[in-house]
Simulated scan of single mutants.
Amino acid sequence: MGIFGSDARKGETASRSDVTMLARIDPDKGVVDLISVPRDTMIDIEGHGTQKINAAYAFGGPSEAVKTLSTFAGVPITHYVEVHFEELKDVVNELGGIQVNVPESFYSDTSGISLEAGEQTLDGDQALAFARERHATRAGDFSRAQAQRMIIEAIVEKVLSKSITEIPGTVESLARCVTTDYSVTDLVSLALTFKDKGLTMYSAACPSYTLNQDGISYVGTQYAEWQDMMRRVDAGLDPTDTSVEIPEPQASDTALGAATNAASPAEYRDLMADALTTDDVVDVE
C-alpha cells in the first residue's frame, strides 16, 4: 500500500506529496511494515526527466505517485491512502489524542508549538507540528519521516486498543478523514483481524543521504542497502535487522528494491562521507 501526505492548502489544485511511504500489510502473520521514502529522493519520472519523488503526486495525483513508488520499491502496490494536513489533525482529535515518544525537543516556527522529548499524548495540532518539523531536528527531513511513521503507528495502536464492539464505529469515523480506495468494510476487517491476531509493526526508511546536484538539493539512494531492505520486507523480517540472513527466494529476486527509476549516482560511498544520512536520526529508546 502507498501512503501519501499531501501538502496542499485550501484553494490549491496540485501539490507535491509531503509524505511518501510504503506499507506492507500481512494480516495472516499480523505484521505491518512502514517504510519511508524521502520526499527529495532523486528520480526519473517519465515525461518529466529528473525530479524529486514527491513531484510524482503533483504530475499525476495518486495514480502517478503509486506507479513511481512501485517502480522504486520493486513491488506491486494495490492500494493507497491519502491524507492532508487538516485531515491528520482530525484523525488524531477523533481518537482523543495519540501516545508518542518524541525523540528530541524542538520548537516549530511554523506552528509556534514546542514539544519536549519523551513519552506524551499529542493532540491534533501537536501531532501535525511533529509530523511537519524538519528545520529544528537533528536529521532534517529524515527526522520528519521518522515522526510521520511514529504517528501512524500511534494511530493504529490507539484504534486497536478499542474494544471489538468499538472498532467498527471508530474505523468508520476515521475513514471520513482520509482518501483511500479501501472500502470501510475492508478497513474494519483488517482492524478486527489485527485485534484478534495481535500486531507487530516494523518501521524503517530507505537508506539514503543528502546530495547537491546542479545547485538542487536531492536525496540519494543507497542502492545495495535499499535492495537488501526490501528483500527483508518481502520475507516478513525486520527491515532494519542487517544481521539476519535473507532467505530464498528473496535473496535472488533482483526486482525487489531495484529502484530502476532512481537517478542518483550509482557510486555513492564517497558521497556519503560528509552528508546527512538516514542513520543520523535520534533513536527512540
Rank of each mutant, 00 (worst) to 15 (best):
V100F: 00
P103V: 08
D123E: 04
L122I: 09
S114C: 05
G140D: 14
K162V: 01
K158N: 12
V156W: 08
V159W: 08
G124N: 02
S163R: 08
V102I: 11
V91A: 03
A129W: 05
A58R: 08
S114M: 06
N93D: 15
F106T: 06
Y80P: 02
T68D: 03
A58P: 01
G97F: 05
Q120Y: 10
D109R: 14
V83Y: 03
A131D: 06
I152F: 06
V91W: 00
S108E: 05
V100A: 04
P62L: 11
S63M: 12
D141P: 07
D109W: 01
G118Y: 00
I155L: 07
I98P: 02
Y80G: 01
G60I: 00
A73S: 14
R149P: 06
K67I: 01
D109K: 15
H84A: 13
Q99V: 13
F59W: 10
F106D: 08
E64I: 12
H84T: 13
Q99W: 11
S114V: 03
S163T: 14
V159E: 09
T78S: 15
G60S: 04
H135A: 09
L128H: 06
Y80R: 09
V159M: 02
D109P: 03
L122P: 09
R138W: 10
I113D: 08
G140H: 11
E104V: 06
I155F: 03
Y80N: 07
E86I: 02
E116L: 12
R138Q: 14
I98N: 04
V159S: 02
Q120K: 13
Q126V: 09
A139S: 14
G97V: 07
R134K: 13
F142T: 00
S70K: 03
E157L: 14
I152P: 00
S114H: 12
G112R: 01
A58M: 02
G118S: 04
L69N: 04
S143E: 12
G112Q: 03
S63Y: 07
S108V: 09
N101A: 13
V66K: 03
K89S: 08
R149K: 13
T110F: 13
A136G: 10
S63F: 05
A131N: 06
S143A: 12
L115C: 10
D141A: 04
M150V: 04
L88Q: 02
A56R: 06
F142P: 01
I152K: 04
Y107Q: 02
D123Y: 09
A129C: 07
I113A: 07
T78D: 15
S70Y: 10
S161C: 06
